[in-house]
Nucleic acid binder design. Structure first.
Length: 449
RNA sequence: GCGGCUAUAGUUCAAUGGUAGAACUCCAGUUUGUGGAACUGGCUACGAGGGUUCAAUUCCCUCUAGUCGCCCCA
């Protein structure tokens, strides 16, 4: 609707208001969702490629799982006491009446898939790798979105600590392959259902004696999930925690041996680590090993964590399966990409075409379609702007795109079945018959490179 | 979920109680078929809804979104 200007002010104002009302609604992304635009895709591509390569090198097979699962899977698996389940799940009821949720993390789905698809009978350990979006109804912030991407590795069916070491090694290898130089491996063991209860009561009684000095949140945590007090950031609490009994000093023999062997394996791999007795992780299902990988040695590790993981030997039972030991790792791609930009890690830029196809007039336009196809079949990527009419703007664009060669087909060339090949670096050009175009372009590209 | 800040073209920023300018980008053109420069022109915005007012992009409120801190995680 054309807008009229220079009418009487009042009428104009009214008219404008009316047209505004008629304007269709501008849609925008739902809160916490975001577009990942072409300009950052090279970073994402680099991460995906690194994940694929490492997964392949270590024989971890790709698996893709549904985004939607029964809500109960996470309530039982991830744990009812966790923030993730308590307040961060995207949940809804289907028309059919199923209570479902968008997956907030990958592991419960992996376990479900393992049990459902009879992977018990596959040769052990079952090694799986995944990559895809996760959803958490958290408050968005930079580096924290409601839809975010994770990749992960899971090794199922083997309790030996060497698998823990392998998963850690894989995680580090992915980051190294992407190009990160400095990383910090934080590691801890939080025991199993054998030894954790006694440690727990020890911790609780220690904390109870100092309850007055704890922060509000920690008083609550003390009741629900005392382990979480350990990673509180409040200064009052950190002071108390620094003197608290440590999990690794109260492990049962099996857990202790497991942890010791893991550390020996890491030594063997020349992987440096930091034993962090305050590292407990937010999910309920972890047993024995827990670890995180930080981009640097930053104090504020939580937000700098690129990823983390651990062992979950008891999760299969919780979800109705047989006792099955497993260890896994997952990392957030959004955050990895952010960190790449921050630290100047280079992105992956795929080869882009160096040849541009310019055409003039309808007949040439039609002919140029065929030339394009010939070149593409021959493995030569070609840029073009078929919609443009004049040569100047096409050359202009070719120049901006930093093309080596421009093929020009005009009315004359279309009739003669020829093409002008113009070298954009030196400006020289020559006329070539249709049939010889591919060969000639190949030759010229070779000379240029 | 709690607290602070913010919201104007695609982008980065202006101005103003009488409805908006610039730069860059994009598109087109500078005599009809030749790029990098220059010039000319064009497109595009007051986040949404209420209130105060003769009049609101401007003041007030609500919502929405973004951002920062907390929390949490990835």
């Amino acid at each position: 609707m054309p807008r009229k200007k220079k009418v009487q002010p009042v009428k104009e104002a009214v008219a404008k208001k009316r047209t505004r009302k008629l304007k269709p609604k501008q849609f925008q992304t739902v809160r916490g969702m975001r577009d990942i635009l072409p300009d950052v895709q090279p970073y994402w591509q680099k991460v995906r490629k690194a994940v694929e390569k490492i997964a392949n090198d270590y024989s971890y097979n790709r698996i893709d799982l549904p985004l939607v699962e029964f809500r109960e899977l996470y309530e039982r698996g991830t744990g009812k006491g966790t923030d993730i389940v308590e307040k961060e799940m995207f949940k809804f009821k289907t028309q059919g009446g199923d209570d479902v949720a968008l997956r907030p993390e990958g592991t419960p789905g992996i376990v479900r898939a393992y049990l459902q698809n009879g992977m018990q009978s596959w040769s052990k350990p079952v090694k799986l790798s995944y990559i895809g979006p996760m959803y958490r109804y958290d408050r968005p912030q930079e580096g924290r979105y409601r839809e975010f991407y994770q990749f992960g590795f899971e090794a199922i069916g083997e309790k030996d600590a060497i698998l823990d070491a392998q998963v850690i090694q894989m995680a580090l290898r992915v980051f190294k392959t992407i190009g990160f130089k400095k990383m910090s491996l934080q590691i801890n063991s939080i025991g199993c259902s054998e030894c954790r209860p006694s440690y727990n009561s020890l911790l609780v009684s220690y904390l109870n004696n100092r309850k007055k000095s704890l922060c509000m949140d920690c008083k609550k945590r003390l009741k629900n999930n005392p382990l979480r007090v350990l990673d509180c950031k409040e200064e009052k609490c950190t002071q108390i925690v620094s003197q608290a009994p440590q999990a690794i000093d109260h492990l049962c023999k099996e857990c202790k041996d497991h942890f010791t062997f893991l550390l020996e394996c890491l030594d063997e791999l020349d992987v440096s680590y930091e034993i962090n007795s305050r590292l407990v992780r937010g999910l309920d299902y972890y047993t024995k090993t827990v670890f995180e990988i930080w981009a640097t040695n930053d104090e504020n590790g939580a937000r700098k964590a690129l990823g983390g993981g651990g062992r979950y030997d008891e999760l299969f039972e919780t979800l109705g399966g047989k006792r099955t030991p497993a260890v896994g790792f997952a990392a957030g791609i959004d955050r990895v990409v952010e960190k790449m930009k921050e630290t100047g890690v280079k992105a992956f830029y795929p080869a882009i075409p160096k040849v541009y196809l310019a055409q003039l007039g309808d007949m040439a336009k039609k002919k140029s379609l065929r030339i394009f196809e010939e070149l593409e079949k021959a493995g030569i990527g070609v840029a073009e702007s078929f919609g443009r009419g004049n040569l100047r703007s096409q050359l202009n664009q070719a120049n901006q795109l930093d093309m080596d060669l421009v093929l020009i087909i005009g009315q004359r060339e279309a009739l003669d079945e020829t093409v002008i090949i113009k070298d954009m670096k030196c400006g020289s050009q020559e006329v070539v018959a249709f049939r010889k175009v591919v060969d000639q372009v190949r030759k010229k590209l070779k000379n240029n490179s």
